[in-house]
Nucleic acid binder design. Structure first.
Length: 898
RNA sequence: GGGCGGUUAGCUCAGUUGGUUAGAGCGUUGCGUUGACAUCGCAAAGGUCGUAGGUUCGAGUCCUAUACCGCCCACCA
């Protein structure tokens, strides 16, 4: 008999995952079916860094996007999920630099730009496949034939086109402004790449001596080295303390430079000393004040953040060293007042965490307001939907206060800025094709700008550049705009907003009409995962241990849109168990198919359990449909899980075992229903757990096709589950009555099981029962075999009646859903103890009756909707019946006791 | 300083049109293993949904205030 089991009793994901993935891919299932009739479903994958390694963030987006993709594909919609990788300028360059230093002990400067870029390409060719390989392990059903890389030829052309267009429109300009400078990386970074952390620093109070006088103005600063770049001291125009000093001249310590004392409303009289030193070269606020007052800008820092020549005696010194020395020298000169600890926001690099220095520098910028306006409008008028909705506010808030975007980076790895400087006329030539002469004066003495573009500039074009833009390609026509953008909320500004702006600007259309934002994955205590905390969970290890399906299911059902998720490994394990449960339920059904009789008996009607599971199936389909429409994938997954395990496996399959023994006609009927429901579940689960469902579904199909009766679900079989159709509920009416009855039956069985457990009745001991079921008696009679099997009753000693006149002596009285049950041969009954128990039960029911009575006597009865009131009335009725039964039971026990 | 999110069982989380004895997984306790599954089965204990008000016939679910935690944005030296 065991020969029928050619399936291992434990789901072995290791032998399944790789094989199935390769098969899906080779069959071309990931590519969109071409169907001009249907509007396709299109999603661009957020491109992971080409040198990256899989982390849970990737696992999250892959799981979510693959779910959407598989669902859409099964619905018969042409579906394209377009993958790719990002060149990730800074991250990749750093990695290659590090590698160079480690292996050859040379810096990038030593080998030169051209060689370094070539080395980086080599690195990309060597390691760029790792991340995509890892995405495959998760089951990502994206169309690899369309895979793109932000630095490949087509995308580079798109970037260039975009740059030139913006430049020609005057939306890109080059200028000298205060920017965020990253000394370690020696490049400018955008505002978004600077993070502020509150830290304890020192606030230094010192004297600004006034020229030709003993007087001084007290000033405070956290960065004494910037004193060297001061070009004014400012006070509030209405500050009486300093009113007489405005217009006088102050002397910069050490350098003895003369600077004016000015008045500006920006100064806060209450803060610090009430006087502010102005360093336009190294502070954003000072920069603005400097502009208002036409102050000179002095740059005291070099690119590596050592002090520049302007710092006089401190030139060449590290800025923090300078800070100390400067203060010491000022102390010696009697210019210091005091120091105090001070908490303030320190700007740090998002990458690496080094302190960012505001610095004046010549950079390229995008004039962002004209782009931001339309991007705001689409959210305001609802054309762009953001899920969850509250992020729309965050999005709008950011765009409303946005400032010009510094897009040039002093890096080597990236899209070179298509601008040439002419040494003859000094003008700039920006062109789609590399020019050989200056567009203004015709000189051939031109040189390309050394900078590259911010990586996010090319990312912003992703939804259309990947489809062939700026060319009018068939893909662009067929698949743009895309349908949905799924990504983490942490890159809403970095990426999503910029895609919207660029999409509207360059294509005149929204690049997608829905943005779905998932939350971040944290550790079990809700902390961010980081190497220093050593709390990083490696998705690859998790998949090795529990399988890709288990990880996916955990990420998908454990989260809700926009909310962070604390991942716990035990939960992954629980979902591994679920995959195994699915596997074993599948084995059971497959075996049932293999053993099922071949002859149909048309006279075989459906049993209660049949009708129940079919009705519940329809309800489930409706719920899942509704939830999917509302992007409630987590809740949908949980409902499928509960249905599969808690109803189909625990109850229906157990009932089916009984039916198999009844008659051949009944057995076949039951198998058909098992196949139908299992098939539906596998289809519904496939977007969550693609591997186990595909593997099982194929085997189920083969077993069914091998059967003489030709078993098949109404949807029919197809060559693979991944391309099978999504199940539909149809228009059948809900069979509520079957559901109600079976649930009552379950309640009765549970009540008996509980009593047996409490009374420690040997599970093998079949006991008798007398059931008084009132008007439920007629249908319940038919369920006697099921009842006795499930509750382990002696079928000979199970009596079902409408009414029981007198509780049998020595029996254990129970009630379930208004049905009275007396267990016989349940061992010695302590009539006193049971009397207490029944009394307590009765009290509870009476309390409920009281509550319901007063509820129904109040305004509820007239104000609440009729069906709600009716439901409560019904409950009251049932409670009264229940109370009546309990009273009889109680009185009987009392009678026995006396 | 502004904005947003969270606060539900010991732990991790669900609970979207407000319906009236609140759910899951893990953990805990008890019982159970010869045929789908011990990666299992049958049961049990355990929350009144941060706090205070309000709207409503009715609120975990809406409103206001408040506490705590977290996040985002912001040029007070």
């Amino acid at each position: 008999m065991s020969d029928l089991f050619d399936l291992p009793k434990t789901y072995d994901f290791k032998s399944v995952e790789q094989r199935l993935y390769a098969w899906w891919e080779s069959q071309g299932y990931f590519a969109p079916r071409s169907d001009p009739q249907h509007r396709p479903f299109v999603m661009s994958m957020p491109p992971p860094n080409v040198t990256g390694e899989l982390h849970l963030g990737h696992a999250m987006f892959v799981s979510m996007e693959d779910l959407m993709t598989r669902h859409s594909r099964m619905r018969g919609v042409p579906t394209l999920w377009l993958p790719g990788t990002d060149h990730a300028g800074i991250a990749t360059q750093l990695q290659v630099e590090k590698d160079l230093l480690r292996t050859e002990e040379v810096t990038r400067e030593e080998i030169g730009r051209e060689a370094f870029v070539e080395r980086t390409w080599a690195w990309k060719r060597k390691y760029g496949g790792i991340i995509t390989e890892q995405l495959r392990r998760l089951g990502a059903s994206c169309d690899w034939s369309r895979e793109r890389f932000t630095l490949d030829e087509g995308l580079s052309r798109a970037v260039r086109e975009a740059f030139v267009r913006l430049y020609e429109k005057g939306l890109i300009y080059r200028g000298t402004y205060l920017i965020n400078w990253s000394p370690g990386l020696r490049t400018a970074v955008s505002d978004l790449e600077v993070e502020y952390s509150e830290e304890e620093v020192t606030l230094y109070y010192f004297k600004y001596l006034l020229k030709g006088s003993d007087e001084f103005i007290p000033v405070a600063t956290a960065r004494p080295e910037t004193i060297l770049g001061d070009t004014a001291v400012a006070v509030h125009p209405e500050d009486e303390r300093f009113a007489s000093l405005v217009g006088k001249t102050a002397i910069v310590p050490i350098l003895a430079r003369e600077i004016p004392v000015i008045a500006d409303e920006y100064v806060d009289r209450e803060f610090g000393t009430g006087a502010l030193k102005i360093t336009p070269g190294h502070d954003p606020a000072d920069y603005e004040i400097g502009r208002r007052h036409n102050l000179p800008v002095i740059n005291v820092l070099r690119k590596d953040a050592t002090m520049s020549e302007a710092a006089g005696p401190y030139a060449g010194m590290d800025r923090f060293e300078c800070r100390k020395r400067m203060w010491a020298d000022m102390q010696a000169a009697g210019l210091t007042i005091r120091t105090e600890p001070y908490r303030t926001q320190i700007p740090r690099s998002q990458r690496g965490g080094e302190i960012i220095e505001p610095m004046v520098s010549t950079q390229w910028f995008v004039r962002i307001k004209p782009l931001a306006e339309p991007a705001l409008e689409v959210v305001r008028d609802g054309r762009l939907r953001i899920i969850p909705e509250h992020f729309a506010k965050v999005y709008a808030n950011w765009l409303e206060n946005i400032r010009d975007w510094c897009i040039s980076r002093q890096l080597w790895w990236g899209h070179r800025i298509p601008a040439w400087h002419c040494s003859a006329c000094g003008k700039i030539t920006v062109a789609r094709q590399d020019p050989d002469r200056c567009a203004h004066c015709g000189s051939t003495e031109i040189e390309q700008d050394p900078d590259v573009l911010d990586t996010w500039f090319s990312s912003g074009l992703w939804p259309f550049s990947t489809l062939g833009w700026p060319d009018d390609t068939p893909d662009l026509r067929a698949f743009y705009p895309t349908t949905i953008m799924e990504t983490g909320y942490d890159i809403l500004f970095f990426w999503v907003a910029r895609m919207v702006m660029m999409g509207l600007e360059f294509t005149g259309r929204l690049p997608f009409d829905t943005v779905y934002l998932h939350g971040l994955i944290r550790d079990e205590q809700g902390r961010k995962m980081s190497k220093t905390l050593a709390n990083v969970i490696d998705p690859l290890e998790v998949m090795d241990e529990f399988g890709a399906d288990a990880l996916r299911l955990t990420l998908l059902t454990g989260s809700s849109p926009g909310n962070d998720m604390n991942l716990s490994v035990p939960r992954v394990q629980a979902n591994r168990n679920f995959a195994n449960k699915v596997w074993n339920a599948g084995r059971l059904v497959i075996r049932a198919v293999q053993r099922a009789p071949a002859e149909r008996d048309p006279s075989t009607a459906l049993t209660l359990s049949d009708r129940w599971i079919l009705a519940r199936r329809v309800q489930l389909l409706r719920n899942v449909d509704r939830l999917f429409q509302g992007f409630q994938y987590g809740e949908a997954g949980r409902q499928i899980y509960e249905f599969f395990w808690g109803e189909f496996a625990d109850w229906y399959l157990e009932a089916a075992k009984l039916q198999a023994a009844e008659s051949p006609g009944r057995a076949l009927r039951s198998v058909e229903i098992q196949v139908r429901v299992l098939d539906t579940c596998l289809r519904l689960l496939h977007p969550y757990t693609p591997f186990v469902t595909e593997e099982l579904w194929g085997r189920l199909r083969d077993a069914c096709l091998a059967h003489q009766a030709g078993l098949a679900p109404p949807e029919g079989w197809s060559e693979a589950l991944i391309v099978a159709s999504w199940p539909q509920a149809g228009s059948e009416a809900d069979d509520e009555e079957s559901i109600r009855r079976f649930e009552l039956l379950r309640e009765i069985i549970r009540t008996i099981r509980n009593a047996r457990a409490e009374k420690q009745i040997d599970p093998g001991h079949r006991i008798g029962a007398i059931v008084g079921a009132g008007h439920e008696n007629s249908w319940l009679q038919e369920q006697a075999p099921l009842l006795s099997a499930f509750a382990r009753l002696d079928p000979e000693a199970l009596v079902l009646r409408e009414r029981i006149d007198a509780p049998p002596a020595g029996s254990l009285p129970l009630t379930a859903g208004g049905i009275e049950i007396y267990l016989i041969q349940a061992g010695a009954v302590d009539v006193h103890e049971e009397g207490e128990r029944v009394s307590r039960q009765l009290q509870a029911v009476e309390a409920q009756i009281e509550r319901l009575e007063s509820l129904l006597a109040g305004p509820f009865a007239t104000r609440a909707p009729a069906e709600i009131v009716a439901a409560e009335r019904k409950k009251l009725e049932q409670a009264r019946e229940e109370a009546a039964r309990l009273r009889i039971q109680r009185d009987a026990l009392r009678g026995e006791a006396s």
